[in-house]
Design a binder for these strands. Structure first.
Lengths: 344, 344
DNA sequence: TTGTAGGCGTTATCAG
DNA sequence: CTGATAACGCCTACAA
């Protein structure tokens, strides 16, 4: 017989009666206290306290056509990158009355499209999407959405909409230049997953090396669509050393691959950085502990998450259409032992 | 003038009119198709299709006092452990019409208490909480909740409620026995965070070593309340070697610490496994790639996540109170090079 | 600054 | 198996 209890819950009307005002006044005290007189506000607050009133989110959503859910669309939960982004978001969201709901589209544009539709139908307070590479249908939905929409993790001045991220193309180019600056001349690329951001890093990498004196350059690019992992880094290094044995350095898609490659190089007795240089991407916490420390490109993942939430909160609280948010947070090349070869 | 458009959305009533039935019949076709006649169902389905009807979640929640949100309470987003759990949950949830909403209580019991209250007020479809160690108030709320509640990540036959996990006490004991079996006799423990599950692993570890011939045992337990990281593993190993320099093995709280300790041992020229054995916990993907491979205790994280969702789904679909769900998924000691010392 | 009236889209209830 | 009638608790609009 454990059916739902007779709902004896306290409603706005109960509070209003207790406070001697109307229901709408109670509602206003809760949502927009500044438009209510000091006196009413006090009475209402006392009544809320006394009765233990708790607003009903569903009723509010139905009446206002708006929820307090911020939707987040990410391509992967495996990727350690997104755990930092999430951390930033949750840290920031803690100060605000919003809930975060995650949709995982598994690097599949059509799944993303479906999830955008699903989220939008729930009248979210805001939407955060990873990347700038949605399908045209997705882009149309995002453009038409009547809530703030922020794209994160990437930055491209020529793309439309609000965005917080950094340029993956420039990051790839910076990695290539760093390795060249350290004297490496036959530089490879190890890449997994090959999502659009990875591809832009590769493009930047290629362009930066273009016109240098390495005729074998294109043979040194080893990529796969498989998901990234430490083991895969070891595997891709082995493949590189078969296809282009004279390679003297690599830029890896991310630190997982780079760590795998570094450990594999050690097993093969390859001296790092003397004989072979390695640069990773993302700068995970563990990278600096490797022997030698892994050179990597530090990306502002936590900050992106934090800013994404605060931007949405700001957009929601200011009535006027706020300025577009287009923030390039940049990245940093962090040199450590794995590329610290002596240069004359 | 970008106010909300005149809401021209299609409602149940529109569909009902189109199909020539009543609104409630449409509602039933959507929620409980089997109680509607074949004929009505067809007509309704056609109308839904034609009009592009999409149910309104808020209205449904208000009327039924129930949402499709499964709440998840975890102590950390940093911890790589939970990303596997999440992956299992999202993979399983993909087959069902539920959304997952994550609350991060940051290892703070009072934050957890607050979040449980917040979630419960939203009338969730179900609730998943990590661990068995809630405050009394939290436990009371969970007991009184009128939705399925599952505790995950831990298993204790003497605790109440539904749970899916494994015994951390046994895992700690198994690690200690493994190291002794490999001939190590002065075995330390490195621990961070020291949440309740970690403490139970330590208890199991201590009990398993109790009565052995090591008088210094207690000096070899190095713990801190700091969050776990690879760097911290290195640091704790240094501390152990100061406080008990004759130690010949360690069991680490988790693989992050173990990897940090292994890398630090390498820097110090300590031979592993000959002079020093290491056993981690969780068996991360990277652990098998270390040089030497890291012995670890594999835990069924993905499976726990998957089962947690499917258990809730099952409980929701069967009307009758289903049997209690109390599943001990166990763990596995995976021996690799870091403890593979020759034993006579 | 406050209140009145009405409706948001769905589901529970109970009768047919 | 189907339907009429009432909520569900709050918010928008407008008026005072």
């Amino acid at each position: 017989m454990r059916k739902a209890e007779k709902k004896s819950s306290i409603t706005l009307v109960d509070v209003a009666r207790e406070a001697g005002v109307s229901a709408i006044t109670v509602s206003r005290v809760i949502r927009t206290p500044h438009v209510v007189s000091e006196r009413s506000r006090r009475k209402v607050e006392a009544a809320v306290e006394k009765l233990g009133y708790v607003p009903d989110a569903a009723a509010s959503a139905l009446a206002s056509n708006r929820t307090d859910v911020i939707g987040l669309l990410i391509p992967s939960l495996t990727n350690s990158v997104f755990s930092d982004v999430l951390r930033g978001m949750y840290d920031e969201a803690e100060n605000h009355p919003f809930s975060i709901q995650i949709g995982n589209f598994r690097y599949r544009p059509l799944t993303e499209e479906m999830l955008i539709g699903k989220f939008l139908r729930q009248k979210p307070a805001g939407l955060i999407v990873a990347g700038l590479d949605q399908t045209d249908i997705s882009k149309g939905m995002l453009r038409a959405a009547d809530c703030p929409v922020i794209q994160i993790m990437d930055y491209d001045a020529s793309a439309e909409g609000d965005m917080i991220g950094f340029s993956h193309y420039e990051a790839g180019a910076a990695a290539a230049r760093h390795l060249r600056d350290r004297g490496y001349r036959r530089i490879g690329f190890l890449g997994a997953r090959m999502d659009p951001r990875t591809q832009r890093r590769l493009a930047g990498f290629n362009d930066a090396l273009n016109g240098t004196d390495d005729p074998q350059q294109s043979k040194r690019v080893i990529v796969t669509s498989t998901a990234s992992s430490v083991s895969l880094g070891a595997e891709l290094l082995r493949e590189l050393l078969v296809r282009a044995p004279d390679s003297d350095a690599i830029f890896c898609n991310n630190d997982d691959l780079a760590i795998g490659a570094l450990l594999e190089a050690q097993r093969r007795g390859i001296r790092i950085p003397e004989d072979f240089g390695i640069c990773g991407f993302n700068d995970l916490e563990m990278s600096k502990q490797m022997n030698p420390g892994l050179t990597s490109i530090a990306t502002p993942r936590y900050e992106i998450g934090r800013l994404a939430i605060s931007t949405i909160v700001d957009a929601l609280s200011s009535d006027k259409a706020s300025d577009p948010t287009r923030i390039d947070l940049g990245f940093t090349v962090v040199m450590r032992g794995s590329s610290a070869r002596a240069v004359d």
